[in-house]
Design a protein around this nucleic acid. Structure first.
Length: 414
DNA sequence: CGTCCACAGGAATGACGGGCGG
DNA sequence: CCGCCCGTCATTCCTGTGGACG
């Protein structure tokens, strides 16, 4: 224990001495809203025009905002709403804005509770029926006589899990309000989100639409430079490193979030090594680490049988090159299940799980036809074998299995 | 050119667990 | 607090199918 305290002391001291790399790490977090949003002028102006009527006490149109992750949707909305409240304060007009992340809130109740808190209604954390809290929300809103702009971020997540009933109620609320009005800004990562909405909700909600396209490598570069000026000390960041961050993120749907993560992690790697500059090497390492961590987490959170299927694919790829089709997987899977003392699922179910793993990228599968010898799916591991060992060895149920020699494969040459 | 393999993958149904309304 | 209902996971049964083989 003593020696461990000592180790920590070192870490703390090093930290307290201050970083030689980071001036302000905060600006690289993706929830940070910068003062300047490069390449989003058009969207800012558009949203500004839409929300402007609120300043003169008129309700504004509902908006639906689309775009993949890391295209600046959240930042633009927060930015515009901040400016709007600022302006409203100057003018003394009664505009309220509320920004809710629906995925984090999780349930309709908590979304509504957040809205209530925002307009100074006290509500219990839990215990009320959703209808009840909605009524209180409506009554209080009406008595206050305000224009209320509600931004619902990651709205697709809520609708997918809980349905669109909350949206339905919210889009209809104005019909029963005289003195107050509610406007909704819906933000969605999912481009197909519209299809899952009730047409009535959709038509009310998407009076206006703004689409956010992925950033190009050049645009990402501008964004990174902007933040890097604040985040890092002068001359720490090499030009090659930033460009690489931008290029790597552009290759992956133009995701600014990914670009910022790359830059931050690269900085952290350089810092930990006590180096003075962030180089392309650091960025590449950052890329590897981020990808590794994502795969690691994905595997770790898998249900047991999916893990066993991965394990099966692991053995097949280790002992054997070319024969991993559904039937092979299933036979070996059954043997491993027996070895682990778990009862195996049916082939139908395993086939489904293989498809899920394929979508996650942990397996690669494609249907092939062997003509006379049937039609099947060829399956391979989508990640390095060592990651499988690394993750599953942490689970005591699987620890011993890696030394196991599957009978099913022993008949074959290694 | 028809057959037939070895599955794919859809639909219906059942078991279970957790949340919601009364 | 209890029962009901709904979503999830899994099974069962099923029809469909690309192409080598004969």
């Amino acid at each position: 224990m003593k020696s461990q305290d000592h180790i920590l002391d070192e870490v703390f001291n090093h930290f307290l001495k201050g970083s030689k790399i980071f001036r302000n790490r905060e600006v690289l977090r993706h929830d940070y809203v910068p003062d300047n949003l490069p390449h989003r002028k058009e969207q800012i102006l558009h949203l500004g025009e839409i929300t402007a009527p609120a300043l003169s006490g008129s309700p504004c149109s509902n908006v639906l905002i689309y775009g993949k992750t890391g295209t600046g949707k959240t930042a633009v909305v927060k930015f515009v709403l901040n400016k709007l409240t600022q302006k409203a304060k100057e003018l003394g007009s009664t505009v309220n804005v509320c920004f809710v992340n629906c995925r984090l809130a999780g349930t309709e109740y908590r979304v509504l509770a957040t809205l209530c808190t925002n307009i100074n209604i006290k509500v219990p954390f839990t215990g009320l029926a959703v209808g009840e809290i909605f009524d209180r929300f409506k009554e209080n809103l009406e008595s206050q006589g305000i224009i209320f702009i509600v931004a619902l971020d990651e709205i697709d997540a809520l609708v997918k899990v809980r349905g669109d009933s909350l949206l339905y109620e919210l889009t209809r609320i104005n019909e029963n309000l005289q003195r107050s009005k509610v406007s909704i800004i819906g933000i969605s990562n999912d481009l197909k989100f519209k299809e899952s909405l009730d047409p009535r909700v959709l038509s009310t909600l998407s009076e206006e639409e703004i689409v956010f396209k992925p950033y190009t490598a050049d645009e990402l570069l501008d964004i990174l430079m902007e933040r890097a000026k604040i985040a890092f000390y002068n001359d720490v960041l090499t030009e090659g490193a930033v460009k690489l961050c931008a290029a790597l993120a552009a290759a992956e749907h133009g995701d600014a979030r990914r670009a910022l993560d790359l830059l931050r992690v690269a900085g952290e790697i350089a810092e930990r090594r006590g180096e003075k500059k962030i180089t392309e090497t650091h960025v590449r390492e950052a890329q590897e680490r981020i990808e590794h961590d994502q795969v690691y987490e994905a595997i770790k959170s898998l249900p047991t049988h999916s893990k066993i299927i991965l394990l099966t694919a692991y053995f097949l790829s280790k002992f054997n090159t070319d024969r991993s089709v559904t039937g092979e997987i299933y036979n070996l899977y059954s043997e491993i299940c027996e070895q682990l003392g778990v009862s195996p699922l049916t082939q139908r179910r395993v086939s489904g799980l293989i498809n899920e793993l394929d979508i996650l990228g942990l397996l690669n599968s494609r249907v092939i036809s062997l003509g006379r010898y049937g039609r099947t799916k060829k399956i391979g591991l989508g990640v390095p074998r060592k990651v499988i060992v690394e993750v599953l060895s942490e689970d005591e149920r699987f620890r011993a299995i890696f030394n196991y020699k599957p009978k099913y494969l022993m008949a074959l040459p290694e």
